[in-house]
């Protein structure tokens, strides 16, 4: 559905050249839900704007929905939908009319456009807001209208740029279901960007991690997590004076990674966290090291993110 080779985009600014996207390689199969995960400024939006014909790449090639990006942009547009990060509805316009007009611009006849718009209003929980001006909608309602604007012509491939920003948990879950239904019922291919690890984990068949304009990791959430060497064992000590002793003990565990300490907490990665725990607890006890809490964490996408980018996407992450 999408193949991109060495796709790049640089911007000239007053302060110099910005290499927003540097040689991205992409292969997305029909019917896949692919997540594009990366920190602010990684190049997600720029990549999407190139793939949706809004921005001409400075280098590289891409085929989107069977059409060459450079030679047949109209062919690409015919088959894709795009939900921009910054929204798409005009403040003064009526929500329902914006949606119908968008469908009409995609070539739907008036009656079908109206019907399609009504269906999406119901599916995205916008019932009763048809005659409201867009400026009078709440942030989440407007975001759902943006999403409807990108889906109204039932495209075979949709690009969603951070679709769930500003949505409450229930709307987010509803959106995820909607996206899954699109794939199941219509075979729609979905390419979305997100900052939310749980979203990538729960929704995406495959995750691409992008940083500084290049893809630094790719795979299903399971594969990516498996690539992280083992589980994290996190000990919270009763007394931080024992941190050094505890560190030495966990470092001696079989196949353990190098432990990290932070105050009274010690974290280490081991292949099978749960099975080393009994022995470890006995050892610690034998050395007179009291514990306030023990936690074994399966690897998360944030661990993946951390290991490939050196940064965390979570703001509450504790030990590096």
């Amino acid at each position: 559905m999408i193949t991109a080779r060495a796709l790049s985009r640089t911007f000239q600014t007053r302060t110099g050249t910005v290499e927003a996207v540097r040689g991205i390689e992409l292969d997305v199969a029909a019917g896949e839900i692919v997540g594009f995960l990366g920190p602010n400024g990684a190049g997600k939006t720029t990549t999407l704007r190139m793939l949706t014909t809004l921005l001409v790449p400075t280098a590289g090639e891409a085929t989107v929905a069977g059409c060459d990006l450079r030679r047949d942009p109209v062919g690409v547009r015919r088959q894709i939908g795009y939900v921009a990060q910054g929204g798409a509805a005009y403040a003064e316009a009526l929500a329902g009319e914006e949606l119908v007009d968008q469908a009409r611009l995609y070539g739907l006849p008036a009656a079908r456009a109206a019907e399609q718009a009504r269906i999406l209003f119901t599916q995205l929980d916008l019932d009763g807001l048809w005659k409201r001006t867009c400026k009078s909608l709440s942030g989440g309602q407007r975001r759902r209208l943006d999403i409807a604007l990108g889906l109204v012509h039932s495209p075979a491939l949709v690009f969603l740029d951070e679709p769930s920003t500003g949505l409450d948990p229930q709307s987010r879950a509803n959106l995820w279901n909607h996206i899954r239904r699109l794939r199941e019922d219509l075979g729609t291919t979905v390419f979305l960007t997100t900052h939310y690890l749980d979203e990538a984990d729960a929704l995406c068949d495959r995750v691409l991690v992008i940083d500084h304009g290049t893809i630094v990791a790719a795979g299903s959430p399971e594969e990516l997590k498996r690539s992280i060497n083992g589980d994290a064992v996190l000990l919270t000590l009763a007394d931080r004076a024992h941190a050094e002793d505890a560190r030495r003990i966990v470092a001696a565990l079989e196949d353990a990674g190098s432990p990290a300490t932070d105050g009274n907490q010690v974290q280490v990665r081991v292949p099978h966290g749960a099975s080393v725990l009994p022995g470890l607890l006995r050892d610690l006890d034998a050395h007179g090291i009291g514990l306030a809490a023990v936690e074994v964490r399966r690897p998360t996408l944030d661990d993946v993110f951390l290991s490939v980018t050196g940064r965390s996407l979570r703001d509450d992450s504790l030990v590096a």
Binding site: V74, I80, Y82, A88, L105
Partner: peptide
């Protein structure tokens, strides 16, 4: 931008 991604 929204209108520019359509086939219009």
């Amino acid at each position: 931008e929204r209108m520019r991604v359509t086939t219009a």
